[in-house]
């Protein structure tokens, strides 16, 4: 079934959020979400990189990997594309906008090993999306991730002064909050249903 890219975009932000329903990108999500500002920095970087790498990986997959019959190498090729793209962005941003580099640059190396980026590229292949669909899916998922990490960071700053049982401090509490957030996001699932 052909899903309209517009629907796919909203669905990947709300109903099938990459983090809250597919559990991707958890590592950096839990460790960076202490401050709203740095979460925003990382989230924007993820949004930018997912949008661009899904587009590049789609082209690479359909024009190089499939014709050359090297599908078994797709993981390695995707990872190299992502790493190379991140490195390139870092160099360009550093050269042309030092201000942006200082706010965003430190997060870029973290992104190469963010599961969400590779995961989105793999989902795009498995679900057989067209080019436009892939780009909107990538952009939507990136925005969804940004939304999730901002929400968690906001809640965590509020919780700083509150009493939390010792065993639950840190990761445990973040996971509980994420669980409640995921529960709330299930409420969206009646709007558009896309797998």
């Amino acid at each position: 079934m052909e899903i309209s890219p517009w629907i796919l975009f909203w669905a990947s932000i709300f109903t099938s959020n990459i983090l809250l329903t597919n559990f991707l990108g958890m590592c950096s999500y839990l460790s960076v979400s202490r401050e709203v500002e740095s979460s925003f920095g990382l989230g924007t970087a993820v949004f930018f990189v997912t949008t661009a790498t899904t587009a590049i990986n789609w082209v690479v997959y359909h024009l190089i990997i499939v014709p050359a019959d090297i599908i078994y190498l797709q993981y390695i090729i995707f990872i190299i594309v992502i790493a190379a793209f991140v490195q390139l962005t870092e160099i360009i941003v550093e050269r042309f906008s030092p201000v942006l580099y200082y706010s965003l640059g430190i997060f870029l190396p973290l992104i190469t090993v963010n599961c969400a980026i590779l995961g989105i590229s793999l989902f795009m292949i498995i679900r057989d999306y067209s080019f436009i669909q892939s780009v909107t899916f990538g952009a939507g998922s990136g925005l969804g991730w940004l939304l999730a990490i901002m929400l968690l960071a906001g809640i965590r700053t509020r919780l700083k002064e509150k009493f939390i049982p010792t065993g639950l401090q840190g990761a445990g509490m973040s996971l509980l909050i994420t669980g409640i957030m995921a529960l709330a996001f299930i409420g969206f699932s009646g709007i558009v249903n896309v797998q």
Partner: peptide, 14 residues
């Protein structure tokens, strides 16, 4: 559904 995995892991860690 997804949220249960978050809750269970949080409880396990706790």
């Amino acid at each position: 559904m997804a949220p249960s995995a978050f809750f269970l892991l949080a409880m396990l860690i706790w």
